[in-house]
Write a protein that binds this DNA or RNA. Structure first.
Lengths: 242, 242
DNA sequence: TGTAAGCTCCATGTATACATCGCGGCGCTG
DNA sequence: CAGCGCCGCGATGTATACATGGAGCTTACA
């Protein structure tokens, strides 16, 4: 066998197929045939089926009526709506956190994350790798502050879609100039959010989280309004069908 | 073979297992073993795996770290939070419907549904079967009015959980007296919702939808506060772990 | 020429044998 | 007695052969 990563064939198939779907190599609407994929990847149908099942769980594939799988299509409107839903869910998490109250250690953890993010700005050019990681951690923590497993799970699920993640579009290198301003504004929102939650201001926390998600939406709309040149460098948008 | 319903073994296994999980026969945390289930249902492991995978998509099973599946546990708090999430999502659908505008034929369809629900009340004892069907149809239509496939999908997904459906707890026969009042209040909310959407009052529509979902939450809390006697007749609550 | 029946092929469904891997018990050894 | 390592079992992972069933084509008959 080849010496790829990961242990099982199903894992490798999952990773390979996910990559192809997200990369736009398998456009939305494409029917995936077990035999063809099995031959292509040099494994049997069984691990292929396992991989396809998991991709269906990730909402990257739809089950066809009479059996089989189809690559899900994402139009621009779907991206926008998905981000809207993320905003709504994160808003709910923030509101619940405020309403139910957050244990002080957790609040301290959040404030520490904010300081760490501040520190990333100190360098000349921002270390996007690090920022993405911290930003994702902050959003995950905010979900946990709701003290609702159900909500955490739903947020994690929607966030797994590549273009809906709070850290999507950050790896886009095209408009470094605007970046600093954008990130600084986002950080202001982070601070206000924690403040609102700490003050038990549920409505304010929810509104802030929703508006915070709007930044991602503005990014998408900006990227799509400027012709292909910009979109080229944005892997998260390769999946778009139109 | 036995002459159950449905065509494939995987389908039958799916239905059988879902029934056992929802019925509380397989309590939360139970590890499901392919071989054991295969022997028990008299089929091979392959269709069992297919069924387990689909149950994971339905969020009734969790994948165990090292492979395998575990029945998901639902505590009371999870039920409440799930209903909260449904309310939030339906609220978003109602708001988007109001903000984006709804085609008149669709609004007419909604008003027609409201009239049909009114008609159900005419009889001496309400036909709950019929009411459930119409109520579910109304909620589905409201989701569609958002004109967002993503949102529809998420609502449908969360609504698939037995205790989160807008028609859950309606089959409970225990407090017929209060029922008429409850349903009539719900219908008032339905009417106000459509009115708000038609008037493009996004905030009002969202608030109303959220409050409407609270009715389900009150039902749960009422049922749980009255000892087992009441809970017996409520199949939707059999899944509760505690 | 149109229609309907039947056939054939292809894709998924199913069973089963074998592989692999992790874990726990048991025994050996220092 | 303690610690290490080996062995074996049980669970999932994988391959493969065969079953099934539907769609499209072809052919024969009206």
């Amino acid at each position: 066998m080849q010496e790829e990563k990961s242990s099982t064939h199903a894992q490798r198939a999952l990773i390979a197929l996910r990559k192809r779907i997200l990369g736009g190599e398998l456009p939305g609407g494409t029917r995936l045939f077990e035999v063809a994929l099995a031959e292509e990847l040099g494994i049997s149908r069984t691990p292929i089926r396992a991989a396809l099942s998991r991709l269906a769980e990730e909402a990257l594939l739809d089950r066809a009526p009479g059996g089989g799988f189809v690559v899900r299509s994402f139009a621009v409107a779907d991206v926008v709506d998905t981000i809207e839903v993320r905003g709504v869910l994160e808003g709910t998490a923030a509101r619940l956190a405020a309403e139910r109250g957050v244990p002080p250690p957790m609040l301290a953890e959040a404030r520490d994350l904010l300081r760490q993010i501040d520190r990333v700005f100190f360098g000349q050019s921002v270390d996007m790798e690090e920022y993405s990681k911290l930003n994702a951690a902050f959003h995950r923590l905010m979900a946990r502050m709701s003290q609702s497993d159900v909500l955490c799970r739903e947020i994690e699920r929607i966030t797994a879609l590549p273009f809906a993640s709070p850290s999507a579009f950050l790896d886009d290198q095209s408009h470094q100039a605007a970046l600093a301003k954008t990130l600084s504004a986002a950080q202001d929102q982070h601070r206000a959010l924690i403040e609102a939650i700490a003050n038990r201001e549920g409505f304010r926390a929810e509104s802030l989280a929703r508006e915070h998600a709007r930044a991602a939406r503005r990014n998408v709309e900006f990227l799509l309004s400027h012709e292909a040149a910009l979109r080229e460098g944005v892997p998260s948008l390769a999946i778009l069908s139109s």
